[in-house]
C-alpha cells in the first residue's frame, strides 16, 4: 500500500488506489484498445516463469501453460495472480569501468553503447496508457534500432507491460525477451531495473548474446523509463 503514497497527494492518493489496481487500469486499456487479449497476458506470464526455471536467483519459477494461467480467478480484473509480480527482497550491484580497465578485467566487456531515460506526467489521464512514449523516446536516444537486438531484459512488473514495452522498443520476433524471467520472477522493486542490466551484461559477457537492450521503470503505469544498449566486441 505504500506505493499509493507515490501518487498525486491531492487528487489521487486520497482515493487510496493500490498498485495492482492502478496496473489493472492499464491492462484494461490494452484490452479495450484491441491491442492485446487476456490470453496474450497469460502467454507472457507463462513464458516468464518457465524461463525463470533456468535462473537460480529467481524467486518464482514454474512450468504452467497459458491455458492454466487463464483458469485462475482475477486478482484485480483483468489481471490474474500470475500476471502480477511477487513481492521480493533483493539487491544488485554492477561494477562499471572504462576502456582498457574494462578490457583488463573481463575477456568480453559488455559495452554501454547507449543509455537514456525519460519521464512522463504521473497523471494517468494525461497519457495513453497503451503506449510508452518515454520508452520510445529513450530507445531512440539510446540507439536501440541501430543494430539487431538478441536479448531484451525488460522491467515489466505486470504481464501486459511487457507487450507495451516491446512495441515501444520496436522489438521483433528475433529478440528473446526476459530469458531471466524478468520482474515477474523476482521484483525487488527499486533494484529490479539494475538486475535487468546485470542479467543482460552476463549474457553479453558470456557471448550468448552479441547485442541487447535492458530497461528499467519507475512510477505508476510505466511513468519513467530507462533504456540501456549493451554490446560485446567481436573477438
Amino acid at each position: 500500500m505504500v506505493l499509493t503514497r507515490q501518487l498525486d497527494p491531492i487528487t489521487v492518493a486520497p482515493l487510496w488506489p493500490d498498485s495492482v489496481s492502478i496496473a489493472a487500469l492499464q491492462a484494461r486499456a490494452m484490452l479495450d484498445s484491441g491491442k492485446a487479449t487476456e490470453a496474450d497476458f497469460a502467454e507472457v506470464a507463462s513464458r516468464s516463469r518457465r524461463n525463470a526455471l533456468d535462473n537460480p536467483k529467481a524467486q518464482l519459477a514454474w512450468d504452467r501453460s497459458a491455458e492454466e494461467v487463464l483458469s485462475e480467478p482475477y486478482t484485480v480484473a483483468p489481471l490474474r495472480r500470475s500476471d502480477c509480480p511477487p513481492i521480493t527482497d533483493g539487491a544488485a550491484a554492477v561494477v562499471l569501468a572504462a576502456g582498457d580497465v574494462a578490457r583488463s578485467k573481463v575477456d568480453r566487456p559488455a559495452w554501454i553503447r547507449g543509455i537514456d531515460h525519460r519521464v512522463e506526467p504521473i497523471h494517468l489521464g494525461l497519457r495513453d496508457l497503451t503506449v510508452s512514449e518515454s520508452t520510445r523516446l529513450a530507445a531512440s536516444k539510446a540507439g536501440v534500432a541501430d543494430g539487431p537486438v538478441d536479448v531484451a531484459e525488460l522491467h515489466a512488473p505486470f504481464s501486459h507491460q511487457e507487450l507495451i514495452l516491446a512495441e515501444a522498443l520496436g522489438l521483433g520476433v528475433d529478440t528473446r525477451i526476459n530469458p531471466s524471467g524478468g520482474a515477474l520472477a523476482a521484483n525487488a522493486m527499486l533494484t529490479a531495473g539494475l538486475v535487468r542490466i546485470g542479467e543482460l551484461a552476463d549474457r553479453v559477457m558470456s557471448g550468448e548474446a552479441r547485442r541487447g537492450v535492458a530497461h528499467a521503470t519507475s512510477g505508476p503505469c510505466l511513468q519513467q523509463n530507462l533504456v540501456c544498449v549493451l554490446e560485446g566486441e567481436e573477438a
Binding site: 507515490q6 497527494p9 537514456d116 519521464v119 512522463e120 511513468q223
Partner: peptide
C-alpha cells in the same frame, strides 16, 4: 517530511519534465 514517496514523480509535470531525463 511531507509523507509523499518519491515526490519527484508527481512533480515532474509541474517542472516541465515530460519527455526529458529527470
Amino acid at each position: 517530511f511531507e509523507g509523499v514517496m518519491m515526490p519527484e514523480l508527481f512533480l515532474s509535470d509541474a517542472l516541465g519534465c515530460t519527455g526529458k531525463p529527470m
